[in-house]
């Protein structure tokens, strides 16, 4: 196993009878962005909560910058900025005060804290709101403020639990830009997300989790190419044609699967496939490049969770 800024070996987390994380191992390289993807209940949030030392391990080993999480939680927490899933900004304080009070927890000197706070308010376009109370902010502003708060201590590692869930596209793109610019500055990032587009945009590598285990870990492009192929053809078939098409596919070399009224063909030679499908002129079909979402659904299945 290569050396990285975070090393996890056989991590286990149990809540009573429930095993939320079931013996996972991974390495996070310094400066990369690693995404944890998975359906609800896969163990993503539990995993990252163990990394920022808020949730004790049931078993396994976890090192952050060579510090053992069991013995040096304070040191480790001092180098990690956390954007939790739930906003937990301080509603009794203003935007600026939220940053300054948080800076005190890291023993940052008042003068320096003020300087950094204004820098971050500019970075996340919140300066005009500095004297507002939290309840007066929109969802996107709260999210930006919580990212600013996580950055006030200049963390080596930034952990983001669903950073853009529930935000409009404008707010989401602003946050993506900021996260990419932090990555250029060398901040290691770990994020969880439900949005495959977000993972594709931000992550160097993704870990696809389900039922407390990591199913695949690698760069999105490589994983997609290896597991799904390069192209996907979606066929929407009516009931009358379904049997005939499936009969044809059974006899063909194509890899395919069915979900509801749609058949998915995974291939690297879409044009040939399309040519051989030309004998069914009434098909509604979409031919597109394979994405992380195809891989995700292939690995974790298409049935609903929860």
């Amino acid at each position: 196993m290569g050396k990285g800024i975070i090393q996890a070996r056989d991590l286990v987390k149990r809540f009573g009878e429930l095993t939320a994380v079931d013996g996972i191992s991974f390495v996070v390289r310094e400066g990369e962005c690693l995404g944890f993807l998975g359906p609800n209940g896969a163990g993503k949030t539990t995993t990252i909560r163990m990394i920022y030392a808020i949730s004790p391990l049931t078993a396994g080993e976890l090192y952050v910058a060579d510090y053992d999480i069991r013995h040096h939680p304070r040191k480790i927490k001092g180098m990690i900025g956390v954007v939790p899933q739930e906003n937990n900004l301080d509603p009794d304080l203003t935007v600026l005060e939220n940053l300054l009070v948080y800076a005190r927890y890291f023993e940052i000197h008042k003068q320096e804290a003020v300087r950094r706070a204004f820098e971050l308010l500019d970075f996340l376009e919140l300066r005009e709101k500095k004297d507002r109370l939290i309840e007066e902010l929109s969802a996107g502003m709260k999210r930006r403020l919580i990212i600013a708060r996580a950055l006030i201590q200049r963390p080596r590692i930034l952990i983001l639990d669903e950073p853009t869930t529930g935000l409009d596209p404008q707010a989401r793109h602003l946050i993506w830009q900021r996260l990419r610019s932090l990555k250029r500055e060398g901040v290691t990032q770990i994020l969880t997300t439900h949005y495959m587009e977000e993972a594709t945009q931000l992550c160097d590598r993704v870990a696809i989790m389900d039922q407390g285990m990591i199913l695949r870990l690698g760069s999105p492009q490589e994983l997609v190419a290896a597991e799904v192929g390069e192209e996907v053809i979606e066929l929407q078939v009516g009931e009358d044609e379904e049997a005939r098409i499936k009969g044809f596919l059974e006899g063909s070399p194509f890899i395919w699967e069915q979900a509801g009224d749609t058949l998915y063909l995974y291939c690297s030679n879409g044009r040939e496939v399309l040519a051989s499908l030309a004998r069914y002129p009434h098909l509604r079909l979409v031919h597109r490049p394979a994405t992380l979402e195809d891989l995700f659904l292939k690995l974790t299945g298409r049935r609903l969770r929860e």
């Binding site: 808020i54 939680p73 304070r74 040191k75 927490k77 937990n88 301080d90 509603p91």
Partner: peptide, 14 residues
Amino acid sequence: HLKTYEAILATPLT
């Protein structure tokens, strides 16, 4: 209610 404890526990405080 406010999850203040959660927020503070993500800092060097125990």
